[in-house]
Nucleic acid binder design. Structure first.
Length: 205
DNA sequence: CCACGGATTGGCT
DNA sequence: GCCAATCCGTGGA
């Protein structure tokens, strides 16, 4: 079990030196960490989707820069948080070079540290029900609820100490499944969703 | 088990 | 005014 002292933060070039599809796959197995006072909420990334505004109509960046999506046009290493369906937030990792408009949506996380704190963020301070653990963070809106991520975290620098990514498990490429992305109508046939085979915190098969 | 629809706000046509 | 990179409860098989 890792302690916060052991987190080895990913360097800037992790976010900038490869194309968004490669970075999406590389993100699987990495730790997502959010500082919460003296504690660190953390989990392992198990499901992601790539978005590329240069060729992908589903990307928020496809129609150019706006106030909402401007962080997607910055260089890699920032958090892009958007509000959806009047109720939920979703968190993305911005990748690539300035003005590229590429990012990776985090869709599934396996809780690692402070699981009860994340459970309470999701369900309130109710009695712990083991059967609900799988529902803590197996979806993009659920992740933001569990980690208490909202519009205030849009633009967060992932090289800082509030929210960052860290080295984690090495995932064998034969255990990475590629499928169509969830819940989009445009550019729907691209196989740009990647997840770790058989992990219970993947949102859908 | 699966399919369907309601919730509820802000961004952009 | 339309509808979205979602989630959850309901109702039927």
């Amino acid at each position: 079990m890792p302690s916060e002292l052991n987190y080895k933060k990913l360097p800037k070039n992790f976010y900038t030196d490869k194309d968004v599809l490669q970075i999406a796959k590389n993100l699987l197995g990495k730790y997502f960490v959010k500082k919460d006072g003296k504690k660190f909420l953390s989990g392992k990334i198990v499901e992601v989707e790539a978005y590329d505004g240069s060729i992908d109509e589903a990307a928020h960046s496809f129609n150019g820069k706006t106030k909402r999506n401007e962080i997607m046009f910055d260089e890699g290493g920032y958090l892009y948080v958007y509000f959806i369906y009047g109720m939920y937030f979703c968190a993305n990792i911005v990748t690539g070079l300035k003005n590229q408009g590429t990012a990776v949506l985090i869709r599934g996380i396996e809780p690692i540290e402070e699981i009860k704190a994340m459970y309470d963020n999701r369900f309130g301070n109710e009695e712990f029900d083991k059967k609900k653990v799988a529902a803590i963070s197996n979806g993009p809106g659920k992740i933001c609820s569990a980690f208490d991520i909202n519009k205030n975290h849009n633009g967060e620098n992932l090289l800082g100490d509030e929210i960052f990514l860290a080295e984690g498990d090495k995932i064998n490429s034969k255990n990475i499944i590629a499928t169509k992305r969830i819940g989009i109508k445009k550019s729907a046939d691209l196989l740009w969703r990647f997840y770790i085979k058989d992990n219970p915190f993947v949102s859908k098969k």
